[in-house]
Every structure is written in C-alpha cells, then in structure tokens.
Nucleic acid binder design. Sequence first.
DNA 1: TCATTAATGTGTT
DNA 2: AACACATTAATGA
Length: 232
Amino acid sequence: MTEPLVHDKLWYLSQINVLEALPKPSLEEIERLAPMHTAPKGKLILSPENRPDILYLLKRGRVRLYKVGPNGKQFTLGILGGGNIFGEIEAFSAVTRDVYAEAMDDTLICALRRSDLEQILAAQPQLALKMLQALGERLREAEDFLQMLATSDVRSRLLYLLSKLAEQFGVVRGNMVHLDLDLTHQELANMIGSTRETVTATLSALSREGVVRTGRRSIEINREAAARFWKE
DNA sequence: TCATTAATGTGTT
DNA sequence: AACACATTAATGA
C-alpha cells in the first residue's frame, strides 16, 4: 500500500459565512479595525514561513488552502469562497500547521490582528459564537469527507467532491450546475487523493453517462446527481 | 501567426 | 495507480 495516510488526503469545504447575520455596528467595527487589501491571483497569502498572527476575512475571490507533502506534491485541503475566514486556527490555538493559502483569483481580504480580534470578540459575543459554529461545521464536513475517502471508490469520491463544489460555487444552467472554478483534473485529483489519469478517465465515463459535461477547465454536473449529496 | 507550454486522452504494465 | 506517449487547447512572443 503506497497510499499516503488518509488524513493527508482530507479535503473539506466551509460554506459558513461568519459575517452574515451580525448586527451592523459590529460589522462597522470590524471594517474599521481590519485593513483591507487585495491579493492578486497566484499570490501566497499564508505559508509556513510567513504566519502572522492574523485572522483573514475573505471578502471577494477564492482562496485555496493546501499542504505540501514530503514528496513535494500539493494536497488541497479546501477552497474558500467570499465570506469565509482563514488563519483562525493559528489565531485561536498554539498549534502551527504547515498550510499554504493561495489566491485563486484576484481577491479582496481583510486582515484582523489577534489583539483586535480579541477586542471585537469580547464586545461581540455573537461573532465568537459564529466562529465556533464555523469551526464546528468545518470539522463535521471534514469528518464526512474522511469517511467518504476511506470507504468509497474514486467515482464516488469524485461525485461527492463535485456535488460539494456545486453546492458552494455552482451556477445553475438548466438541468446542469456549472462549476465556476477553474480546476484541472490534476487539481481535482489532489482533492480526492487520486491521480490525474484516473480523474480524466472517470470524468469521461460520467460524461458518457450524461452525469457531467466537461470542457477544458470547466465542469457541469447534473443537478439531480449533485443534489443527491446535499442532504438535509 | 507560430511556437511553446499546459491540459487532457488513452494504452500498457 | 504509475508511466509513457499522443492529441488538443491555451498562452504569449
């Protein structure tokens, strides 16, 4: 078994927007304290060498979180969309994780220093609750995904991944959901612990069955097929 | 446009 | 799944 450890293949999404449903005053407080900056496509926002004690709020664009294995291969932990937070693990715990965060497109990001964050959380307990909720949700999704990785074949893992991506980033087009991401087969493989070739072959099969439609760096998944995984 | 590189498709082990 | 190789699409000088 030359497979890497299952937990190294863990991929999860977070769809929690911690900022939603916050009272306006606290939002304004956050805006005031968090300098906003842009990170162009491809920019490394976080790396093991550069880990400021900062909580990032992603306002626009997408950020990919990944690790680099001993073999030098990247493993994608997750893709964050607008409204998500990252860097929070480091801000809340002493644990250092060797995670990279890279802007997938031109992004707009707020950076909150730890001291400011603590101040805001003290004044806005709702936000603290929201963040706990977000972390809990991520953990739950991670557990679901771990189970999927351990018990399913590549076809099921791929379908699960695509449905989750569709849930978060999908744009409905008729009876298909278009994934507005710009992912290569290699990147998909990185997310489900498979190989580029297998993903290509599996996608072709699914395409023949009409479950997905593929183009270069573009994927659409049948709505019903995707929705089958969007339980509850 | 042409040449180079990146992404994808496929067969073999 | 890994590898080699073919084909095709994107990129950019």
